[in-house]
Design a binder for these strands. Structure first.
Lengths: 395, 395
DNA sequence: TTGAAAGCGCTAACAG
DNA sequence: CTGTTAGCGCTTTCAA
């Protein structure tokens, strides 16, 4: 292997004194002293051009598939590029094309539940498919921090942003985001015509309640929260609808509200609320809980009253928090929120807007995404289900 | 307000036909039709220069603090910049300076525990302080995906990367990362001289066991896992050390191993393991559990044997998974792993390497980071602690 | 089918 | 203290 001017041999390229072209086809001993400090200079388009004996234009065309390049030239360029482990510098490309290939992901919270992780995961996998990358930013619910972070995202020329909340809510989109394609996740802003995706709350409740009804339950309680949110309203409405559709009358006494503050130990509150519900003599055969933490409270309350789950009481939750649902004994049947799917939907919607600037993905109003139920062991037929159709009042 | 050539009046600037300079000092009616498709064109450095009546160089200097600019000029430039809501285009700046201001964050998993979130949070907060942004990427433990993602990161010219694992382990750093400053989190590679930070496993166990000893416990079990990992070894060693330091002999029968597979419902396994331990007649007054999920299993096993926590059995976990620790009744005292701090440390280390390329932050070998204990209600003095110093054998 | 050359918006020599 | 200017590495007319 010579040292002279750079030539393209048949598949083998020379190490150069001039450029940073280095061919590394052999398996090498493991490098135990990696570059420290600055990143190693990577081969650029002109290095490839030189090595392939063509112009940078041709390399660009060959790599991107733009323009007309003969098949052979293209093959050669590609081969050389691979040889030099060349990949276009996305920064330079972004500057020239006015497209960074980066999607900003703004979330209000990332550390307390696995929701954010699943959202990010879905968004990322969709982004990867389109050759884009995510820039994740988290405000921990501090509006000032959020502002700074959005500014940073804009300064980095993100092409679009996903604005995600961890709990389904109505919001006012930050004004800064009015200047850039934005899609909302788990949130909606009636004043802004931006695509938004949220869970279909009613369907969640219907799925849960229908599962219970199918197993023969007629006396189904709903343990919900006091706070007035879209999730609370939607799930309650879905509960009512499913009950009525089955021809069972709504018994308002079966609706139990726990006053849970955000982030507080929901389980304890739920345990107390549900225990006092049982104390009043209520004996539903099943409970549909607003979320898994409340369901965990129901487990604890049931233990206090010597009620066995699922023999004496079937329980369904919402969230599929594996940490809880998997670890409870018996395992908790619960409805998994479509976080992953919403993440995917969001970047798909964003890229759609990017491609055709007149496009407005999704329905008018927030797109409602379906959930699915995860069955574990907390649901069974009520004892004597066969015998007591339309039994005694439950309370 | 005229339309003519651009002039700088005392604080008010004209709307221009030529550029995109738009002054917007008035509070405006909320824009209900935000730009769709492409991002709105933002003002550039030359817009500011024009409006301020100086050269771009001066603007650059004024904004960055580099070079010499008179205080007045600087003030004027800054004012105009604010007026035009100018912020330097980081892409252009990156291309010119060969510094993207982006740190890649590679994690093996992000959706199943809150660990990743806390790591990201810590990393991000440190990054923000230094004007950098995080590009988070997640492989879901797929090596091929990971490779692609690291390549994408490199193509985006990230200045450094944080390579994080969710569980403390020894790894082989991907070769691609040998060419760029990298710091490892929750992982170490003996073959590579890269800074690494891991939890101080022994200290975790010592803190937990010392807490129990301080409360008068002398018969302290350790419920651990069978898999041989740095965490398992370290915590076991710490347990032994703390017990011995207190002058209590090690009783190997008090060390219980649960064969938990990664990601499985650890609690069930732990429940069975601990129940059979109790069945053999063991009556420790306290258990130190490898993690919170095992602790939850202990709660369940204790219920089976009518042992009340903490009256009959004190329990300490590790991880501070709020979903579990907060929701158990009684609340679980547990050791919180320093994820947030490790995240911070990692970007601090990375930026240090960036600033002085000869720097090697941290100790030789992985830096061990301290944890702290979160006290809830699962620890109490053993019944009759006062009376039975050096009591009967525990099993 | 290929190549030369003009920038994308910024920073950093260097000159005045 | 301020301004002119040459690129950073790439994409994309436009011309050959």
């Amino acid at each position: 292997m010579g040292d002279g001017p750079i030539h393209a041999f048949s598949g083998i390229y020379a190490t150069s004194q001039l450029g940073r072209i280095v061919v590394d086809t052999l398996t090498r001993v493991r490098d135990t002293t990696p570059a420290r400090g600055r990143a190693a200079k990577r081969n650029g388009i002109s290095d490839v051009a030189k090595a392939a004996g063509v112009s940078v234009t041709t390399v660009s065309h060959a790599m991107s598939g733009q323009g007309q390049v003969s098949a052979e030239t293209r093959a050669k360029v590609l081969r050389v590029a691979a040889e030099l482990s060349y990949a276009p510098n996305r920064i330079a490309s972004a500057l020239r094309r006015q497209r960074s290939g980066i999607i900003g992901f703004v979330s209000d919270e990332i550390a307390t539940t696995p929701f954010a992780g699943r959202l990010v995961l879905g968004a990322q996998s969709a982004a990867a498919q389109r050759g884009m990358l995510l820039m994740v930013v988290n405000s921990n619910r501090d509006v000032l921090v959020e502002r700074d972070q959005i500014e940073a995202l804009l300064a980095h020329q993100v092409d679009a942003v996903i604005y995600a909340k961890m709990y389904h809510q109505q919001i006012e989109l930050p004004a800064l985001l009015h200047q850039i394609p934005t899609v909302l996740v788990n949130a909606f802003d009636p004043a802004v015509a931006a695509p938004a995706v949220v869970p279909d709350e009613e369907a969640i409740a219907e799925a849960a309640v229908e599962l219970l009804i199918r197993d023969g339950h007629r006396s189904i309680a709903h343990l919900t929260v006091a706070e007035d949110t879209p999730a609370m309203r939607g799930r309650l409405a879905g509960y009512r609808r499913a009950i009525q559709r089955a021809g069972i009358g709504i018994d308002e006494r079966l609706i139990v509200r726990a006053s849970v503050e955000r982030g507080a130990a929901a389980t304890g509150i739920a345990r107390v609320a549900f225990a006092s519900f049982l104390e009043r003599g209520a004996r539903p055969t099943a409970v549909f809980c607003f979320n898994d933490q409340l369901a965990m409270g129901v487990y604890q309350a049931a233990a206090l009253f010597d009620l066995r789950i699922p023999r004496d009481l079937s329980v369904v939750g919402v969230d599929n928090l594996e940490l809880i649902a998997d670890n409870l004994a018996p395992g908790l049947t619960t409805v998994a929120l479509p976080h992953y799917e919403m993440g995917r939907w969001a970047v798909d919607a964003a890229t759609m807007m990017l491609e055709r600037s007149d496009a407005m993905p999704g329905e008018p109003g927030p797109t409602r995404m379906a959930s699915h139920i995860i069955e574990r062991e907390s649901v069974a037929q009520p004892v004597g289900a066969m015998h007591r159709a339309g039994g005694a009042p439950p309370i």
